[in-house]
Design a protein around this nucleic acid. Structure first.
Lengths: 354, 354
DNA sequence: ATTGACAATGCAACCGGTTGCACCTATAAT
DNA sequence: ATTATAGGTGCAACCGGTTGCATTGTCAAT
């Protein structure tokens, strides 16, 4: 691989001149520039990005750590869509993504630390904001530019940059949709309870229920850890409540909603005649379940894009003022939700079936 | 950030000694090692990966270029599953992935070239093997370690390393499954016809049909470019063949199969009573379509893992002998395929319905 | 003709590690 | 006592760019 010195020799200039031609940060006479470019061309020269990084202390690279051991993570549309948006933004700024796997939430921090302290990236997009692992605090200690995808703990609300779906609004729309169909006994199946997103949504759920004057049975709240079996199990745990059986389930992602559908079908409950089911994410899958899922469209690609845009602005402009965005979500009504069936009506229909 | 010289000063040794302690490639007395490690610890020292890369000419990074402008690419399970496997293998070898977007197949080469010529990666995993763009030839010119995920052109079959699903076997299993159900008029809906995978599968389709003594109507072969609308359109184009209407469709991925299901439902064709439909990939989605898709399980995560394993072996062992793997696929029978209905039987059933 | 300003380029130190070679010392072999 | 051997460490050049400062040349203003 040709170096800057090879080019310099061939063009009969000093290496620094070659550097200046390529970085474009100085005035170079047209004649010299031509000579240098010709020489570079004939040698197939391309500046070594590693050497550039070493001397400029900039990598034009954004880091990201992905928990590759969680298989469910790759079934949901969250990760691929986020990637799409991130790649898009990075591409436009001529940045690349450097990605490391990790085995869990503790390891995530240690991988981030490795990437940043070894100067492999200029900043990082972080996907986890958990109650049990204070990733954010660690990152602040590291003094590393980063943007959180998700919701920060309240104490860091103003201190850091973040981009999130408007979970409260999303959940509000979901629960209000169910209430408007006449449901009163609505179950909430969250993801990982140690996650801010889960808590955010749960709070919104409780708010809306309270605002509507509906009492919440604690048994209606459960967690499915964002995967299909989780949704299935949640339903199992909620059955046998008699007249307190929920008539509608709201799940914090579509995968869990699919698990709920499976559980419902095993229990002989028809959707939406006997119970209504809602998911979240509007993943590709949700159009094709039986029945198709009513869900919430969450613009993950946009979130990823905005996160990277924000991060790059911060990096290149030394613009330390943190900012944040809440992306709107939209209700997508399909066939898995319907009007509630009153107890006596249901009894009638059961008699009719028999 | 502390450097090797800071540590050296504190531990009262020469910087090269610190380097040796961290690289572990030389014998260092226990006493010195302790002193150095203590000093490093108290300074929070971590070797700068960029500097290491510059002097060792190794990055411990694998490159990859993703066509981020193709939205459908992120709906299928191919990409996320591949990523999962790649991350897994990279993690085990303490490598990372560097990823760039690209806007199309030409751009892909230019991005690969940028990554490699600017020394940002030690090797690259390439996903595209197309008939119209000779990526492989370009890569060979670059003299870059790489592994192809997919099938190489015949002329480079032995010359490069690649990992692919056994497409021939997969397609054979699919078509034989349909034939065993009595189908004679079987349509093939491929992906992008300029892709080797598509051609491979088509050849296998033709082989099996021929071997079974079945004549192929050229109209039964169409391409859906791996997305849902593509599958839908393919069916549209095939209708109106009268007695030559296919009774079964084999699609090269599940997304297209979903499109076929949609077209069928619009045409009032019941699946599998009137026509059978098969997909490929066994994506998460395929379990949840109506009816659930018979499909072929393709182990993309394993393929990604193997590709990275192979590449890393090549890089670290200077092991230039190319090798390749065909990963087995498995037939997954669900409800979208069924026995063919004979013409007179069908007529009867139609009469019965009326 | 002199001075000042600025454009164009060279010089050399620097970014933060690595590594071949030389040197010193302690131990083992003769 | 002498020499060979090997472990442990220092020295300095090197990886391939960048950049502050110095120098030279050119042209306009005085």
């Amino acid at each position: 691989m040709a170096t800057i010195r090879d080019v310099a020799r061939k063009a009969d200039v000093h290496p620094s001149t070659v550097s200046r031609v390529f970085s474009g940060k100085a005035s170079i006479s047209t004649a010299t520039r031509r000579r240098v470019l010709d020489a570079a061309d004939s040698l197939g020269f391309q500046p070594n990005a590693i050497a550039v990084s070493l001397s400029t202390q900039k990598t034009k690279t954004i880091g990201m750590v992905v928990p590759h051991v969680f298989e469910g993570f790759f079934d949901d549309s969250f990760f691929p869509q986020l990637m799409r948006g991130m790649l898009d933004a990075a591409y436009q700024h001529e940045f690349r993504l450097i990605i490391s796997g990790c085995q869990g939430h503790q390891d995530e921090i240690s991988q981030i630390r490795q990437i940043m302290q070894s100067s492999q990236a200029d900043g990082i997009v972080v996907m986890s904001s958990r109650l049990d692992v204070d990733t954010i605090e660690r990152l602040l200690e590291l003094d590393t530019p980063f943007v959180l995808v998700g919701h920060p703990p309240k104490k860091q609300f103003e201190a850091i940059s973040w981009v999130d779906a408007d979970n409260r609004l999303a959940t509000r729309q979901a629960i209000e949709h169910l209430i408007s169909l006449g449901h009163r006994k609505i179950a909430y199946v969250g993801g990982d309870p140690k996650t801010f997103t889960t808590r955010e949504r749960q709070l919104a759920y409780e708010d809306v229920m309270n605002a509507a004057g509906l009492k919440i049975n604690p048994k209606w709240i459960d967690y499915g850890y964002f995967d299909e079996p989780g949704g299935y199990t949640a339903v199992q745990r909620m059955k046998g409540l008699g007249s307190e059986n929920p008539t509608a389930f709201y799940a914090a992602n579509d995968l869990m909603a699919v698990g709920i559908l499976r559980a419902a079908s095993e229990l002989g409950l028809r959707v939406p005649e006997d119970i209504s089911v809602m998911g979240t994410n509007n993943s590709y899958l949700s159009q094709h379940t039986t029945p198709p899922l009513t869900t919430i469209q969450v613009p993950y690609a946009e979130i990823g894009k905005k996160a990277v845009d924000l991060l790059i602005t911060q990096i290149t402009h030394q613009d330390k003022a943190p900012s944040n965005y809440l992306e709107d979500c939209q209700l997508v009504v399909r066939a898995s939700t319907g009007p509630v069936v009153q107890a006596h009506t249901r009894a009638q229909s059961e008699r009719a079936q028999a």
